[in-house]
């Protein structure tokens, strides 16, 4: 697997196009996070924010920092945490109105027009991957409101603009693996932007795909596997 960064990207794009030709139920989108390559630059978080026009307080992907060891033998470890897109998600079953569910391709999504904003799913998520849109804006109380904050986002194939108290304001929001990009043959914003090439995306059901080979070859582990949630994010360390 000694590819260059460019090759990795091209391989993932080629895997993506191959997966898109299959029926949805035969795909299983997964992400692989190579912790050895993550430099903690947070560019994934920034790219995600720009792509999904997320307001302050709402965050889909974060990079957790940890200091390991004692001086002089100290190193920092970074753990990128998008939504785990669990195959057995504890968050969907608690929703009182069927506003969130797992798609056939393994991605858990939220229907903003159905969500009542009770935040029960947030409490049920063992990964802290859901956040609530409180209706905040970065520049609302400043001399000049910046129009980019109310530009459209295209989450889950719909066009959303944050205005007044309309959805997605007062909804629970979460990472959706940038399905709107993926369906157009593009990689999720975080994967496309990752500087250290620590993030990989693809179809686990395709044995030839890069993510499938990496998860198996490097014996990827998953966070909190003991909970039986069957996350779709694999970590290499």
């Amino acid at each position: 697997m000694g590819h260059s960064v460019v090759n990795y990207t091209l391989t993932m794009l080629s895997d993506l196009h191959r997966a898109l030709k299959k029926p949805v139920r035969e795909r299983h989108w997964v992400m692989v996070v190579d912790q050895r390559k993550c430099i903690g630059c947070n560019s994934c978080t920034v790219a995600c924010r720009a792509e999904n026009v997320v307001p302050p307080g709402v965050v889909y992907i974060i990079v957790m920092e940890e200091e390991v060891g004692t001086y002089p033998n100290v190193r920092r470890r970074f753990t990128t945490r998008p939504c785990m897109q669990c195959q057995n998600p504890p968050c969907t079953k608690v929703c009182p109105v069927h506003a969130t569910w797992k798609r056939a391709d393994g991605v858990t999504i939220v229907d903003y027009k159905q969500c009542i904003g009770c935040r029960y799913c947030m409490a049920a998520c063992p990964y802290g991957a859901r956040t609530f849109d409180f209706g905040d804006f970065y520049t609302k109380d400043t001399p000049e409101f910046q129009p980019y904050e109310s530009t459209h986002s295209y989450e889950i194939g719909n066009k959303w603009a944050r205005k007044g108290q309309r959805s997605p304001i007062h909804n629970v929001r979460k990472c959706h693996f940038c399905l709107h990009r993926v369906h157009k043959g593009m990689l999720p914003a975080c994967v496309a932007t990752c500087l250290g090439r620590a993030l990989y995306f693809g179809d686990l059901n395709d044995p030839k795909s890069l993510v499938s080979r990496m998860a198996v070859h490097y014996k990827g582990y998953r966070l909190k596997e003991d909970l039986g949630t069957e996350p779709s994010v694999y970590y290499l360390s």
């Binding site: 079953k93 608690v94 929703c95 009182p96 159905q114 009542i116 009770c118 609530f132 007062h170």
Partner: peptide, 26 residues
């Protein structure tokens, strides 16, 4: 008042998920 979208409370009645404890209690 704690709900994000109070105006959608009727969804618990008309599109309930009885697998949720919240729906059952409501």
């Amino acid at each position: 008042i704690d709900m994000g979208h109070v105006e959608r409370f009727w969804k618990i009645i008309f599109s309930p998920n009885f697998g949720s404890v919240l729906t059952v209690t409501a």
